[in-house]
Amino acid sequence: MKYSSQQYAEALYKSASSIPSKNNDEIVENFIEILKSHEVLYKYKSILKAYRTILMKNNKLPEVIMTCASDISNEVKEEVLGALEIDKKVKLRLRVDKKMIGGVFVKYNNRLFDLSLARRLARLNGRLLASSTK
């Protein structure tokens, strides 16, 4: 019987969710063996893509996207993750956007932390305008 990449990905996700994480290597090995036996190893890229989508839908993608105005050191990265109580073992993708002026955006699954200088200046501007009209 033929299974789609989506079905393989869902099966893998269910298996990985139901057992402790220290057995993940065993799960992956078993999974690859099954793909070999079904002669669908060529589908691994689409299965990975579908698996990533499932993780994203369930807020379990172990990935953080950090956007800064310039490159930052590893210490600063770890400090930001620590302050936001995000596991430091997640995969970190850094993007540089010079238009930001300063500060950092951190996106972790479906939460966006706005620590940018632009937002703070906008808030301060609002406060100053509000107090000037009193």
């Binding site: 994203m56 936001l84 479906n110 966006l112 932390f113 620590l115 703070r120 301060l124 406060r127």
Partner: peptide, 19 residues
């Protein structure tokens, strides 16, 4: 005085990701 007394909290919002 306004600038010295300004306190800013971290803003966290729920966002989505295009699939």
């Amino acid at each position: 005085k306004e600038i010295e007394g300004f306190k800013d909290d971290v803003s966290a919002e729920n966002v989505g990701t295009v699939l």
